[in-house]
Design a protein around this nucleic acid. Sequence first.
DNA 1: CTGTTAGCGCTTTCAA
DNA 2: TTGAAAGCGCTAACAG
Lengths: 335, 335
Amino acid sequence: MTDTGKREVTRSDVAKHARVSTAVVSYVVNNGPRPVAKATRERVLASMETLGYRPNAAARALRLQRATAVGLVVPDVSNTYFGALAQAVSNRAFDAGYALLLGDSDNDIDREAAQIDSLVGRQVDGLIVVSLDPSTTMAVGRTPTVYLDRRAAADQAVILPDNYGGAQMAVEHLLQHGRKRIGHLAGPEGGPGADERLKGWEDTVRSAGQTEALSFVERAEFTRNGGYEAGRRLLKNPDRAPDALFVSSDVQALGLLRAAREANVRVPEDLAVISFDGTEDAAYSDPPLSAIEQPIEEIAAAALAAVLADPFIPVHERVGVSLVTRASCGCHSYA
Amino acid sequence: MTDTGKREVTRSDVAKHARVSTAVVSYVVNNGPRPVAKATRERVLASMETLGYRPNAAARALRLQRATAVGLVVPDVSNTYFGALAQAVSNRAFDAGYALLLGDSDNDIDREAAQIDSLVGRQVDGLIVVSLDPSTTMAVGRTPTVYLDRRAAADQAVILPDNYGGAQMAVEHLLQHGRKRIGHLAGPEGGPGADERLKGWEDTVRSAGQTEALSFVERAEFTRNGGYEAGRRLLKNPDRAPDALFVSSDVQALGLLRAAREANVRVPEDLAVISFDGTEDAAYSDPPLSAIEQPIEEIAAAALAAVLADPFIPVHERVGVSLVTRASCGCHSYA
DNA sequence: CTGTTAGCGCTTTCAA
DNA sequence: TTGAAAGCGCTAACAG
C-alpha cells in the first residue's frame, strides 16, 4: 500500500527493515528452498507489507533463466474462437502463476514470425502458436512450443481437434437429414485445420456417392466477411446450388447466414448448415448453428501442460470434437 | 538460425566471436548511444547471425528498469469488443516494439486486482485497464496506468467513449422513428460505461416526456446470455412492453435478439433496437444492428500513447462515438 | 536456522 | 572509435 519515494523497494530494503539477510527474504518470498523460523518469517512478511514490497520479475527471470510467462500467438484475437482460446489460456496460466504474453499475427505470416521471435527473446517458458502456415519453420530455439495447427516435423509438439472426424460427423449428419448436395465453405489453404476439414468433407461426400456435390466448395478467410463472400458465390445460381453446407468455422457461418438471408435462401429448409468451432457465436445466431464443437478448455489445458512439462515432450495429441445440434441443420425448430 | 548447444548465446559470445568488447555489441544492437565503425558493425552483425544471437529481454529489463511491454486487463477477452480492443492494442504495441501482457479478469474483481498486481510486478511500462469496479483503487504504484472506464480520482488517467452522448444519440434516433416507449437494457452497476449510458438514456427519455418508458429497464452482465435473460424479462408482458430498446452492448443485443425471436417480437417492426459498441457482431446479426460505434483503434492508440508518454500525464479524454444505422432501428430494410 | 556472496546478461560511464 | 567494469534485483550454493 505505502508507495512513495524515488526507487522501487527491493529485497534489500526489506532485509534491512526486518533485520535479516536478503537470503531470508528470498526464502520467505519463495517458500523455500530453506526453512525460516516462524517468528522471522512473520517479521519479514510485516516488513514487506509496510514497505509495499513487490518482487522484481525481471531480476527473477534473469536469475532463473525463465520468465514465468507463456506466449500465445493467434491469427486474430477478435475472432471469437481465438478470443475464447486466449481467455482459457490466460486464466489457466494465471492460476499456475504464469503471465500471458499475447501476440496477434493479424493474419500475416511475417508478423507471425516476428511475434514468435519477440516472445522467444523474452524468455517465455513456453509458446503456444496457432500458425498461419505450418510449412514455415520458425526459429523457436530451445523454447518449448506447441502448435495448434498441422505441423510436419516429428519433433514438434502438436495438439489438434479431430478435424477430419468432425467434418465426417457433420457430413454424415447432413446425409441423415436426406441432403443430396452437401457443399463445403472451406478455410484458407494451409490455414489452421482448414485442409483436414476439407478432406473429411470430400471423402465422406465422395463415399456417399455425391460426386456432383464435390463442386460446391469455396475457400475463404476465417472471417465473417470471408464467409459472406464465399456464401454469395455458393448461392449465386439457384438452379445449381447445394442443399447443405459444412462450414469450416463459426465466423464464416455467420457471414454465410447473412448471404443466405439476402438471397432468400431459408436455413435450414433450403440449406442445412453445420459449422465448425461451436463458440457462443453459434448459439446466438439466427438460426442457431448446429456445430462441431471444439473442447477449448481441454485444448488450452493440454497445450499449457505440454509446454510447461519438464522435460518437454513433443506431444502429438488429438482431442475429440462433438456435434451439437441446433436449428440450422434441421434438427430443432425454434422461435 | 544456428541454434544448438547448452546455453543460449549471450552478448559476450558475440563479442568474443567478433573480437570486440561487449560494449560494442551493445552499441550495435541498440544503434547507440555511441557510434560504431562501419566495418566493426558489420563484423558484429555477422557474428550475431552465425551464432544465432538473441538479446535477453530479462537482462535488458533489469538493467533498464523497464520491460518494454505493456499490460492490458479486460473483463473478458472472448467478448468481441474486448477482443477487438486487445487486437488493436497488441498490434500497435508490437509495432512500437512493445510486447503485450494480457490479463483476463474473468469478470471477477479480486482476479482483476491480482492481475494488475502481477503486471505491475513485471515492470510493464504501462498498464491499460478496463476495470469492473472503478471505485476500487488498485495499487499500481508508479506504473503509468490508464483506465478505460469511469474513475474518480483526479490524478488517474482516463480515456472514455462518449457514453452519455452516445446513449442520447441512440434515444433521439429512436424518437425520430416515432417510438413511444423506449426502454433500456443496461449493463451491470458500476460496469464499464454502464452507468453513463443508463443516465444518458434516462435523461433523454425523461425530457421527451416518456415517463412511462422509465420502467422499461433491466440490468444484465455484458454477455449474450445476460442480454437474453434481460430481454425475456423486458418482453415478458406483451401488453406492457417497450416498442424500442437501447442496449448497452452488442453482445447483450445478440441475446436480446434471440429473446425477441422466441417471443415472436419482430425487430424492428415491433421493437426497434440500437446497441452500443458497433463491433462486427452488430453487422452480422439478424437483423443487422444499428449501433453506437466506438472508435476502437482510436481508443487503443490514445491509451497506448498516454501510458507510454514521458513524463506520464494523467489524460482525461473523451472520444467521440457515432451512430451507424442498419436494419434494427427501422432505417434500412434488408434481405 | 541464517548470513555472505557470486553471478544471471545487459547498458553505460569512464578511460584510453 | 573502442574497452573495462560496475551494478540492476534476485537466487542459491556455501559457510557458519
